[in-house]
Simulated scan of single mutants.
Amino acid sequence: MSFIKDFIEKETLNRRNFLLASAFGITGAAAASIVGAGRAHAAGAIEDPTIAWSYRDRTNPYWNSIVSGGESFVESLGKPKSALVHLINEGSSEKSLADVKALLGKTDGKLALAIDANDSPNARPVVEAVVAKGAFVSTIWNKTDDLHPWDFGDNYVSHMSWSDIGPAEQTATILLKAMGGKGAIVGLGGIASNNPAIERRTGLDNALKNFPDVKLLDYQAADWDTQKANSIMSSYLTRFGDEITGVFCANDTMAYGVLEALRAEGLAGQIPVVAYDGNAQAVDLILAGELLATVSTNPHWGGGITAALAYYAATGAFKPSDEPHEHREFNGPTVLITKADAEEFKKKYIDATPTYDWKDFWGPSAGPITY
């Protein structure tokens, strides 16, 4: 398990035109057209757009899988992996937006961008910057509920998220049942403004309603970070000691830090832990009996298809505004992984990389996003 130790050691967009448009009762695509007037490329006008992925950090196994999917898509076009431009925001929304603006300037808007905006409020300025330059963008995970692709014509191509409440409730239920329906748990969540962090906490809360004899001792944001999770879990063990009979983690990388803290106290495998993301290390930990369950969101497909949607819209292969709303805001697939099916999952998704038709934009998706 040395990889866990290694893991641990290892200008704002001017919105004046939008505000003016709102003052005159103009919203959505009309407002977008004011900002991008004279700049937007017609669908199909970009012959060979730059393809970019903006994300948090490739040292994170989840994001590595996302970007690997993006690279697979780029290779399907007969291009080398190096043709994919990487915009690494390091968890900073300010850097995310600045990097996007810089690339928009460098490419003069001839850009197909796939992005997780890092937090929900940052999605709007990113989209507005892209639209103003006539580039094309597809987002994943984080956006506010009032931001919709169809309000920006074709340039905001799509948004994909994952419906995390149900799967998180499933993993939490597995945890609480493993505890015999009684005892006390601690929780570690993601960045507070992230949609998945909010939904996964809701899933835990839903599960707890069915187990009145289980107490939630504390729940803290570890910001998806292994080292921060390790520190928080160590403090939990100091504060609560033997009271802790289970741990809920909102993603796998935080679970790695939790397990390292438990190992330091000789408690690994004795206190059940659940997580989320379905990373290779997490699946190995399930097989080893140190992790109870996780959930895969098929990040390889998600990363590839998000880039594909932006690219094919930019080149005019399809017109996003001709598509129904469920093709512009949709959920990605989820797979619950426990010890009963971890070996099968490992063979199919980890030991081998499934091949995908990157023009089958919505095949594995799981229906429209509902609010």
Rank of each mutant, 00 (worst) to 15 (best):
A83W: 05
A42P: 00
A30P: 00
W53L: 12
N64R: 07
G78M: 05
G25C: 14
P49M: 03
P61C: 02
G25R: 15
R56L: 13
T50A: 07
S68D: 09
G38L: 07
W63N: 12
A21M: 12
A52M: 09
G38Y: 08
S33R: 03
R16A: 12
V74I: 15
I88D: 11
L77V: 10
S54K: 06
S65Y: 02
G28S: 14
I88M: 12
G28Y: 07
D48L: 08
I34P: 00
G91L: 09
G78T: 10
R16L: 09
S54Q: 13
S33K: 01
I46V: 15
A40T: 14
A45M: 10
G91W: 09
S72C: 01
R58N: 13
L77M: 13
G91Q: 13
R56G: 10
N17M: 11
L87K: 07
W63I: 10
S76M: 02
E71F: 03
S54M: 14
V67Y: 00
A83Q: 08
E71T: 05
G28N: 14
L84F: 04
T59Q: 11
G78K: 08
D48N: 15
E90A: 15
L19V: 14
G69P: 06
V85C: 03
A45D: 15
N89R: 12
I51P: 00
A37F: 10
G70Y: 01
A52I: 10
A42S: 12
R56F: 09
F18S: 06
E75W: 07
A40C: 08
F73Q: 05
T50N: 03
H41V: 04
E90C: 08
I46Q: 14
N60P: 00
G25M: 14
A43P: 14
S72L: 10
A29V: 14
N17K: 12
P61G: 04
V67Q: 03
A23M: 15
S76H: 02
G25V: 11
S82T: 15
K81P: 01
F18T: 07
R16V: 04
F73G: 03
G91P: 08
T59C: 00
K79P: 00
G70M: 08
V67A: 03
A29H: 07
T59N: 11
F24W: 12
G78W: 06
F18W: 11
A23E: 15
T59D: 10
A32C: 02
A37N: 07
L77W: 07
D48M: 09
N64V: 00
A42I: 01
E71D: 06
